[in-house]
Amino acid sequence: MRKYEGILIFLPTLEEEKRVQLFNRFKGIIEADGSIANVDEWGIRKLAYLIDDIGEGYYILVNFEATPEVVKEIDRVARISDGIMRHMIIREEE
């Protein structure tokens, strides 16, 4: 298992209940074949540049350990989810 750090940027207009459901989906993917070390909700922050004419996003930072297959699945789900504006997952140094 490898250590990763992921950032998810949700639409700021997304209802809290839907955001929690979507984030729980990501947590389920990670916990199925890994473990979450830390979840840090940054809340609504201003974006460095506009994305589809939207200037803010709801940020959640996740530190976790998982296999590369889990990262691929998170990437796939984030791409098809309407509530996610952007996401990035990087592998932490050992």
Results as ranks from 00 to 15, higher is better:
Gly83Cys: 08
Ile51Gly: 05
Ala66His: 00
Phe10Ser: 03
Ile84His: 03
Tyr4Thr: 01
Leu22Ala: 07
Phe10Gln: 02
Val77Arg: 07
Tyr4Ile: 03
Asp52Gln: 07
Phe10Glu: 02
Val70Ala: 04
Arg91Tyr: 04
Phe26Val: 05
Asp52Met: 02
Leu8Val: 13
Ile89Trp: 00
Ala32Asp: 13
Ile29Leu: 11
Ile44Cys: 05
Glu41Tyr: 06
Asp40Tyr: 07
Lys27Cys: 08
Glu93Leu: 14
Ser35Phe: 08
Leu11Tyr: 08
Leu11Ser: 12
Glu93Arg: 15
Leu14Thr: 15
Glu41Trp: 04
Asp33Asn: 13
Gly28Met: 11
Glu56Trp: 06
His87Lys: 04
Leu47His: 00
Glu94Cys: 08
Pro12Ile: 13
Tyr49Asn: 10
Pro68Trp: 06
Pro68Ala: 12
Phe64Asn: 02
Arg91Met: 10
Glu31Ala: 13
Val77Glu: 03
Val71Tyr: 05
Glu41Gln: 15
Glu94Thr: 14
Val71Gln: 03
Trp42Ser: 04
Tyr59Asp: 06
Asn24Tyr: 01
Arg45Gln: 07
Ile60Gln: 04
Met1Lys: 14
Ile30Tyr: 02
Leu14Lys: 09
Arg19Pro: 01
Gly28Glu: 14
Glu41Arg: 15
Gly43Lys: 09
Ile29His: 01
Asp53Leu: 06
Ile60Tyr: 04
Glu16Cys: 04
Lys18Val: 15
Trp42Tyr: 01
Gly43Asp: 07
Ile60Ser: 03
Lys46Tyr: 06
Phe64Ser: 05
Lys27Met: 07
Phe10Trp: 03
Val39Ser: 03
Leu22Val: 11
Trp42Asp: 00
Asn38Cys: 13
Ile60His: 03
Asp33Pro: 02
Gly28Cys: 12
Tyr59Ser: 09
Arg25Ala: 08
Ala37Ser: 10
Glu56Ile: 02
Arg76Glu: 07
Ile74His: 00
Ser81Leu: 06
Glu73Gly: 05
Glu16Thr: 10
Met85Asp: 02
Ile44Tyr: 02
Asp53Glu: 13
Leu22Asp: 09
Glu73Thr: 14
Val77His: 02
